[in-house]
């Protein structure tokens, strides 16, 4: 029985933001005509002068955020993932990350959740770009409850963070008891010595179901949520590779540059292991409802389970041949 969140991650972010703002008078939100759509409505109603709609101009929004942060504020600059991270990439890099200013870049419509708007509004390269910028922390919550917890946690660090959110309500994975620490993985299913599935974002629920399907077929896979892609929990990656001998990453992102790449970098350096990266296969997708896109582009639990099974048997048989 699939259970969905009652609210979107954007609204969950907004709820947490209001609570943080009540504690911190030096918190402001800024949007590029996105203050409503990025969940800042409640903050704006309570503290009208602390939410700025700067107009449809993401580069300006981002540099204005830098200016405010340089003057003492913690700034939440919220727009949509492709605009926040691609259109305004230089402003994020040079004026926020380089001087290490306390701006949280909040990108909605991350992954395929830009859904019916099509490729223009889907954020499938955002993590790659943000991850390559020094000083930047990159975080991808899985659902509404974890988004609230993560929003409160990233507020505690003074410095740039990219918080990647979705659009609509997604499958519920966590409750309010969710725990988050920068740079730490979250083990969701600890048993499993055949494979380790490392995942994040709205596809965590689907990865868990894929693991159940594998389980039914006698393949025991552990599941690890990696909400923080940078800094990544390298020890957790190495440990899961050591315990299982095979790693699978699942992410709503181009397979180039995101979680799969981050895991590959860790494994390549510390424990070379077979790795299957499930994600968008370096292509442009199309318009459709979010779940239809997830099904079509490789995230059906059945399809993932089948791919993982094939992957495991392919190198297991190869190992046998070599032996």
């Amino acid at each position: 029985m699939i259970q969905y969140d009652k609210i979107s991650s954007r609204d969950a972010f907004g709820n947490a933001l209001l609570r943080i703002a009540e504690e911190n008078p030096l918190l402001v939100g800024i949007g590029a005509d996105t203050t409503k759509s990025m969940g800042m409505q409640k903050l704006s109603e309570k503290y009208p002068e602390r939410v700025i709609n700067i107009g449809i101009a993401e580069q300006n929004m981002t540099a204005v955020a830098a200016g405010m942060a340089a003057t003492g504020f913690q700034v939440y600059a919220a727009s949509y993932a492709p605009f926040s991270t691609l259109r305004a990439a230089e402003q994020v890099r040079t004026f926020i990350a380089y001087p290490n200013l306390d701006v949280k870049i909040v990108g909605g419509l991350g992954g395929l959740s830009g859904n019916i708007e099509g490729v223009t509004h889907q954020g499938l390269e955002d993590v790659a770009v943000m991850r390559s910028i020094p000083n930047m922390t990159v975080v991808i919550p899985a659902d509404a409850a974890s988004t609230e917890v993560i929003t409160e946690e990233i507020a505690r660090i003074r410095g740039p963070v990219y918080l990647r959110l979705g659009r609509g309500a997604v499958e519920k994975v966590f409750d309010a008891g969710y725990r988050f620490q920068i740079g730490k993985a979250n083990v969701l299913k600890a048993d499993g010595s055949d494979a380790a599935i490392i995942c994040n974002g709205a596809v965590v629920a689907r990865a868990l179901r894929a693991a159940q399907l594998l389980d039914a077929n006698g393949v025991k896979a552990r599941v690890i949520e990696m909400p923080c892609v940078k800094p990544i929990d390298a020890d957790a990656v190495v440990e899961s590779a050591a315990a299982t001998g095979a790693v699978i990453t699942v992410e709503e992102h181009n397979i180039i540059g995101g979680l799969g790449s981050a895991v590959a970098e860790v494994l390549g350096g510390r424990r070379p292991s077979p790795l299957l990266r499930i994600g968008i296969e370096d292509i442009f997708t199309e318009s459709a409802p979010h779940n239809d896109l997830l099904d079509r582009y490789g995230f059906r639990p059945e399809d993932m389970a089948a791919r993982i099974g094939q992957f495991l048997s392919s190198f297991n048989s190869k190992n046998e041949e070599e032996a």
């Binding site: 700025i52 300006n60 540099a63 830098a66 200016g67 340089a70 003057t71 004026f95």
Partner: peptide, 9 residues
Amino acid sequence: SLGLGIALA
């Protein structure tokens, strides 16, 4: 834009 941000702050 940077200056505007400082000014608003």
